[in-house]
Design a binder for these strands. Structure first.
Length: 100
DNA sequence: CAACACAAAGTAG
DNA sequence: CTACTTTGTGTTG
């Protein structure tokens, strides 16, 4: 997928593009923390800005922004339809979230 | 300056 | 561990 072009076509900034690119690299059934994404793009202190980029994610269900959680194991938030609920649902369906 | 989908460190019990 | 406070970061208004 040429996200880099699609994202930029959306008017996203270089930072947000990198974040989404790193997020699109997350394998199914696994999860990453905002901090890890921040590290992946060489901005380990921008864990907060990382969330902002995911919030702007124009390809919500396509880019696994739902596979991104907080470092303390918490789900975090979700801008797409459903919110946190859908986030958990997707993680459960993929097996990333083991409630039991 | 203010607001946000966070993280790390310090203080207190 | 749990709860609260402070500082850092990047985009947008």
């Amino acid at each position: 997928m040429n996200w880099k072009t699609k994202l930029k076509a959306k008017g996203l900034s270089n930072f947000e593009v990198k974040v989404l690119l790193a997020t699109a690299r997350i394998p199914k059934g696994e999860t990453r923390t905002y901090s890890q994404i921040a590290r992946a793009i060489r901005k380990p202190k921008s864990s907060r800005a990382v969330g902002n980029a995911l919030a702007k994610n124009p390809f919500a269900p396509q880019i696994p922004c739902h596979r991104v959680i907080k470092s303390n194991g918490d789900i975090g938030n979700y801008s797409a339809n459903g919110g946190r609920k859908t986030k958990m649902m997707l993680l459960k369906k993929e097996g990333a979230l083991r409630n039991g």
